[in-house]
Every structure is written in C-alpha cells, then in structure tokens.
Computed example of a mutant assay.
Amino acid sequence: MAAGWRFPSDWALPEVDSVCASVLMSGDLGGPLASLGRARAQAGSGLEETLGDLAALHAVLDGPPAPGGLIGANPDALPARLVRLIALGWAEASMDELAQVDVSERLTGLATEAYLAARLGEVYRRATRRGRCPSDDHLLIAVSVDLSEVTGWSRLLAMVLVADVLRGVFDGGESVAVLGPSVAVVLTEQEPGIAQRVSSARCMIGDRLSANDQLSSAARPLITSHRLPSTHDDARELLKHIARR
C-alpha cells in the first residue's frame, strides 16, 4: 500500500480482483490489465498514477522486499508489454470521456464530472458578465457514502439509490453529477429552503440504504456544502478534491 494505490478505496474494484486472480493462477494478464487501466481512468487517476499502481504490483512479484519490508515501486522497471496493456486501456477510457462530455453516467443517470465542469464554466462566465462572484449565487453540495464494508453489486446499488433521492429532492434545474464510486455532487443556486432540502436528502438517503441489510453500514451519508472558489480552475480542483473523499 505504501508503494502504490494512494487511496485505499480504489482497491474495491472488480478489475483489481481480476488482475490478482490472473497473477495467482499464472493466467494471461492482457485483458485484466486493459480493464484495470480503463477503470483507473474512469476513476480520475492520471496515467502516471496508474503506472505507479502497476509498478507496485510488479515489485511485489519481481523479488523480495527491501530491508524493513517495504516494496520499492519503480515504473521504469516495468516490462514494456505490461505498460502497453494498461496504458491502452487507460487511453481508451480517457478518449471515451472526451467524446461523451454531455452524456450522463450510465449506471445512475446522473451527469458526468466532465459535464459538471462545463456547467461550472457557464456559471463563472455569467458571473463575470454580471460583475459578481460565483459564490454569491451558487454552491456545491457534496454527498458521499462510506462503502468500505460493502462489496460486489451492492456498491453499485448504493449509488443508484443515492442518485434517485438527489434527483427527487433537487428537481428544479440543479445539476446533479456523480464524481466517483461513492460520491455525488449538486450544483445549486443559493436560495431559501436549501438547508431543508439538504436535510431531507440526508434522511431519505439514510432510509433507503438502511432498508437493505447489505447497505446498512453506509446509511449515514456525509453531506457537506462548499462555496464556489473565485476562479473556474479552482472550482475544477475542488471537484477533484471532493471526488477523493
């Protein structure tokens, strides 16, 4: 873990299981590595970080740990074939994101992070034209659920339920997007009643998740409000920060 995979929640992917299974059974890593590259790109990881993850795995397989038990991950020591496989998968997913900027995320039906970033650009341009600060009129509401004890398809079901609640509560033209496997965000205008709607969303999400035995551990969502930064670039960085919660 110290050598790669900076965010522990990133381990909970079927693609990780497939790579590990192929390694243990001495199977072909071609398909699993390509799938892992796609999954890492879709999770917002850069190519450098993705290769670092692969280097950590390769270091474990390639030899004994250094004194003290730590593994030294060296991306430059990766075999060219492994780099090509995971990089092609990563690039394929990245190109898909570029080609589908305005497409909703398929599972939840919520907007993608790319669409939300474009929507934020509109908000900032309008604020500039009006001589106002975006934080005067808009805010981001982040919703994250703890899926650390949830496995398999139940993780996907959790976000489907969260998405359904957010669409129902924020149904007045707000932009509701998914930022990762366990995070959603709402771009909304600051208006009377927003606190009540946030409270309603928290209660409804908790009720939906607690009704399923496999999701009860995630039934206390973390919901936070964020004022928009002064620039669009800073707002995009804020989205990345929220996505990593």
Score class of each variant (00 low, 15 high):
79 P>M: 01
28 D>N: 13
85 L>Y: 08
224 T>D: 05
211 A>F: 07
71 I>L: 14
132 R>D: 07
115 Y>D: 12
81 R>Q: 08
96 D>L: 06
120 L>Y: 04
46 G>I: 05
30 G>D: 15
142 A>R: 04
172 G>E: 14
64 P>H: 10
189 E>L: 11
142 A>H: 10
76 D>L: 12
165 V>F: 01
12 A>P: 04
215 L>V: 06
104 S>R: 15
176 V>G: 02
216 S>C: 12
59 A>S: 07
206 G>T: 02
130 R>N: 14
220 R>F: 14
169 V>K: 03
99 A>H: 13
182 S>I: 00
165 V>T: 07
20 C>L: 15
45 S>R: 11
140 L>G: 01
55 A>Q: 01
60 V>Y: 06
45 S>F: 12
205 I>P: 04
121 G>H: 12
223 I>H: 03
96 D>A: 08
232 H>W: 09
157 L>M: 05
26 S>M: 12
77 A>G: 09
28 D>H: 06
22 S>M: 13
211 A>S: 09
197 R>A: 01
223 I>W: 04
188 T>Q: 03
102 D>Y: 14
65 P>H: 09
28 D>T: 11
233 D>K: 04
53 D>N: 07
40 R>T: 06
7 F>L: 15
224 T>Q: 10
57 L>P: 02
209 L>N: 02
135 S>F: 08
177 A>C: 12
187 L>Q: 06
189 E>P: 00
220 R>E: 13
70 L>E: 15
53 D>E: 09
57 L>D: 05
17 D>Y: 12
8 P>C: 06
57 L>S: 02
100 Q>K: 14
162 V>M: 06
158 A>L: 05
3 A>S: 12
109 G>D: 12
82 L>V: 07
36 L>V: 00
149 E>G: 12
53 D>L: 08
104 S>V: 11
217 S>E: 09
231 T>N: 06
238 L>C: 05
98 L>N: 06
37 G>M: 04
107 L>A: 14
202 R>I: 03
210 S>M: 05
46 G>Y: 02
134 P>R: 00
236 R>H: 07
91 A>E: 11
245 R>W: 03
208 R>T: 06
66 A>E: 13
35 S>M: 11
186 V>G: 02
94 S>R: 14
26 S>Y: 14
159 M>E: 03
180 G>N: 00
222 L>I: 08
83 V>D: 12
47 L>E: 02
38 R>V: 10
81 R>F: 09
32 P>H: 09
92 E>Q: 08
139 L>K: 13
61 L>N: 01
112 T>M: 09
215 L>Q: 08
34 A>H: 11
68 G>A: 09
81 R>Y: 06
108 T>H: 09
90 W>A: 07
49 E>D: 14
228 L>H: 00
123 V>A: 07
101 V>Y: 08
67 P>C: 10
25 M>E: 15
103 V>M: 08
241 H>E: 12
45 S>P: 06
156 L>P: 02
37 G>I: 00
21 A>Q: 14
75 P>I: 09
154 S>R: 05
152 G>I: 02
97 E>P: 01
93 A>H: 03
32 P>D: 11
176 V>P: 03
167 R>V: 02
59 A>F: 04
42 Q>C: 10
67 P>Q: 05
142 A>I: 04
133 C>Q: 15
122 E>Q: 15
158 A>Q: 04
66 A>H: 13
72 G>Q: 14
90 W>Y: 10
6 R>C: 10
114 A>V: 08
236 R>C: 09
233 D>W: 07
71 I>V: 15
